[in-house]
Design a protein around this nucleic acid. Sequence first.
DNA 1: TTGAAAGCGTTACCAG
DNA 2: CTGGTAACGCTTTCAA
Lengths: 386, 386
Amino acid sequence: MRPPAPPPSAPGSAHAQPTAPRSAHGSGTAQRSAPRGADGPGTAQRSAPRRVVQRAVPTSADVARLAGVSRATVSYVLNNTSSVRISEPTRRRVHEAARELGYVPHAAARSLRAGHTRMVLLPAPEVAVGPLYSGLFHELHWALSRLDYTVVQFGSAGQSGDQAARAWAELRPAAVLMFSTFSARLGPLGVDVLKRSGVRAVITLAQEPTEGAHAVLMDQRTVGRCAGEHLLARGRRRIGVVVPEEPGLEAYSLPRLEGVRRAAQGTGAEITELPLAYDEASAARLAGRWRRLDLDGVFAYNDEYAMLLMRALQDEGIGVPDDTAVMGADDLMLGRLLRPRLSTVRIELPSGRELAEIVDRAVRDPGAPPEVHKVLDVTAVPRESA
Amino acid sequence: MRPPAPPPSAPGSAHAQPTAPRSAHGSGTAQRSAPRGADGPGTAQRSAPRRVVQRAVPTSADVARLAGVSRATVSYVLNNTSSVRISEPTRRRVHEAARELGYVPHAAARSLRAGHTRMVLLPAPEVAVGPLYSGLFHELHWALSRLDYTVVQFGSAGQSGDQAARAWAELRPAAVLMFSTFSARLGPLGVDVLKRSGVRAVITLAQEPTEGAHAVLMDQRTVGRCAGEHLLARGRRRIGVVVPEEPGLEAYSLPRLEGVRRAAQGTGAEITELPLAYDEASAARLAGRWRRLDLDGVFAYNDEYAMLLMRALQDEGIGVPDDTAVMGADDLMLGRLLRPRLSTVRIELPSGRELAEIVDRAVRDPGAPPEVHKVLDVTAVPRESA
DNA sequence: TTGAAAGCGTTACCAG
DNA sequence: CTGGTAACGCTTTCAA
């Protein structure tokens, strides 16, 4: 997160603020007022070519000066502090001055002073997540805003989960929501780093709970189980399960596979794992050896892979559902457009509001022991393909 | 040393404020000051533990004390400052102490002192964007990380673009990338707010340039033009253009429509706007009145709407492409699976690396006049449906 | 080679 | 009701 070293190059070019040593300890308001530029007093602060007059960023002190009041008053007015009454004319002068200067408070300074933030960190998804999750993110975002949190999606491009945790901890967020199903897995160490840095709530959305964190369990195995049970109920006994070859999806695909296995337990059905990349060639290859595989049913990970596979099977002359029943998951619109219509598993994610409330509760009571919420409602949607 | 402030009244009663004083983004203005029990350097940590020992968050001073050095030394060691040489044993002691305490630097404090950040703000998309944009975001993110920027996706749930700009300005990012094609439009005012708050680079990805900002123009009209030209070349003259009813898509759909119109100019072809919601009922309704519309070609906004419409047309007994040619856009995999295979417009977005370099250049030279980059390469992909 | 101290912009606490 | 002042955690110059 640190720049390795500011390009030393031109002397003074990168100087943050070569302010003259403050005359007295605490004459607080008296400096750096005028547009720095022109001929600096004494210290030659030859800023690089100032093609455009880069005005200094206005601070609350500037506002105070312009309004002819103290910085405290500015703060009171701009924050609507209720414990202090400020006369109406003063208020107006302050607002006026702020507007004129284009003053925007400095979040870092504020949170430094406050000792905490209202930031909630969400991990920016690294693999293309479906519309389901996009929708959830969006809802969650909205719900958290309503609760006066600032939502920040924070990426961890290529770092490990625990490295990422460190980077996030630097921001001192109030809460961190971690999707352990994504590639950057957060382990107990990461949770610990976050907690020690003052994060009030760490919440994982995952398959299984992480030590020390609240957990919202989205057990993908139930998706597999549901699909498996559906196929079994239709009398299928030699069942294939598509496992995408694309990296980053294992967190979903493996539990789904496991779920099918569980459903098959004790039924005498046979489960076959079928690696498949998301392209036509791969699907054609799989379809090519389909007859040898001798399967009468397949759960294709999700609707997209199901569509891909179904098309390849049909092109190969394999009847769906007669020869092989095909089952998807996620209940995408597009599955309904195929012929035969794609049978699928509908997944009910928790609502953004629910999630936001879990976050809020956890933030308000950081001492509380980790809660575990089970979510993910799952229903088979029988259509024509299975 | 001043005595520790007594814990604020009833711990549980400090509700997050029911009504925020102001937007107060970034760090909020919660009353709950909750100064952590112990106080600064020097005194023994005797904070009264509540339910769980909420250790005070370690600061660099704590590290210094434990390592038996000054804070300056800690800073030097931890930041690998090259202008100062620290003895190896000291280095080790410092690192050791930092590790033991779980010290993580405070980003806000650091950037406050530094006077600038390495943060790049991206808007979190508000409408479900396709895999194209997800991919671009992901690439961009990665490329910016390589350039040592911290990427933050920042939402603006429901605010106007210029309001959002204010919220973003509070974070004092080095650069803001704005997708003016999304619902929160950033106008010249917003750009000004950002610039005055010290943001070094404002870059819009948009249809048209915004005053004062660098622009990466992704002209959606070319998509429409390409589709239109293709249909015209196939001899179609009465062309429909699907315009999604879903809000938030206008920024794409309207320019695409406009592009088709332009392609048709002077050819005598007739363009008909076709509102369509993304559900089967809406598609069926549109297909129901298709014969009356008397169209021999349609550009369906993108592949998803195209698939939806194509299915509805087929169900209505309308031949594709014989009666009506159908054209999509985005070249999704799924379009290839349909029969007839969907003709489409492939869109080549700029690479994340390119974009990252534009950002970096702009940050390094904030005074430079706004650049305008034209991107978006577009090619028709003829398949069977048109 | 290390340490002391000045501030970055804000807000909370007390004197006026 | 208003204004001075200290302090949040960090970096960096200057002095020892």
